[in-house]
Computed example of a mutant assay.
Amino acid sequence: MWIAQLIRHGLLKASFISDRNQRELRELVRYRRSIIEERTRQHNRIQKVLKGATIKLGSVLSDIMVVS
Score class of each variant (00 low, 15 high):
residue 3 I to A: 10
residue 3 I to Y: 07
residue 3 I to T: 03
residue 3 I to G: 01
residue 3 I to H: 06
residue 3 I to L: 12
residue 3 I to P: 01
residue 4 A to Y: 13
residue 4 A to D: 14
residue 5 Q to I: 13
residue 5 Q to R: 13
residue 6 L to K: 05
residue 6 L to N: 06
residue 6 L to P: 07
residue 7 I to Y: 06
residue 7 I to F: 08
residue 9 H to L: 14
residue 9 H to A: 13
residue 10 G to Q: 08
residue 10 G to A: 09
residue 11 L to W: 08
residue 11 L to G: 07
residue 12 L to Y: 00
residue 12 L to P: 02
residue 13 K to I: 08
residue 14 A to F: 12
residue 14 A to N: 09
residue 16 F to C: 15
residue 16 F to P: 09
residue 19 D to C: 07
residue 19 D to T: 03
residue 19 D to W: 08
residue 19 D to H: 13
residue 20 R to W: 03
residue 20 R to H: 05
residue 21 N to A: 11
residue 21 N to G: 00
residue 21 N to D: 13
residue 22 Q to C: 03
residue 22 Q to K: 08
residue 22 Q to Y: 04
residue 25 L to V: 07
residue 26 R to C: 10
residue 26 R to L: 08
residue 27 E to K: 01
residue 27 E to S: 08
residue 27 E to Q: 02
residue 28 L to T: 10
residue 29 V to F: 06
residue 29 V to H: 07
residue 32 R to Y: 04
residue 33 R to I: 06
residue 34 S to D: 13
residue 34 S to L: 09
residue 34 S to F: 06
residue 35 I to H: 07
residue 36 I to V: 15
residue 36 I to N: 15
residue 37 E to V: 12
residue 37 E to H: 12
residue 37 E to N: 10
residue 37 E to A: 15
residue 38 E to K: 06
residue 39 R to T: 01
residue 40 T to W: 10
residue 40 T to H: 14
residue 41 R to Q: 11
residue 41 R to A: 11
residue 42 Q to A: 09
residue 42 Q to F: 11
residue 42 Q to P: 10
residue 43 H to Q: 15
residue 44 N to F: 13
residue 44 N to T: 05
residue 44 N to Y: 00
residue 46 I to W: 03
residue 47 Q to W: 01
residue 47 Q to C: 11
residue 47 Q to A: 00
residue 51 K to A: 08
residue 53 A to C: 07
residue 53 A to E: 01
residue 53 A to P: 04
residue 54 T to M: 12
residue 54 T to S: 14
residue 54 T to V: 00
residue 55 I to N: 05
residue 55 I to P: 11
residue 55 I to V: 07
residue 55 I to E: 05
residue 56 K to P: 02
residue 56 K to I: 14
residue 57 L to P: 10
residue 57 L to D: 05
residue 57 L to G: 09
residue 58 G to F: 07
residue 58 G to K: 06
residue 59 S to I: 03
residue 59 S to T: 04
residue 59 S to A: 02
residue 60 V to A: 06
residue 61 L to D: 06
residue 62 S to G: 02
residue 62 S to A: 04
residue 63 D to S: 01
residue 63 D to A: 09
residue 64 I to V: 03
residue 65 M to W: 04
residue 65 M to I: 12
residue 65 M to Y: 02
residue 66 V to H: 00
residue 66 V to W: 02
residue 66 V to S: 07
residue 67 V to K: 02
residue 67 V to C: 04
residue 68 S to Q: 14
residue 68 S to K: 11
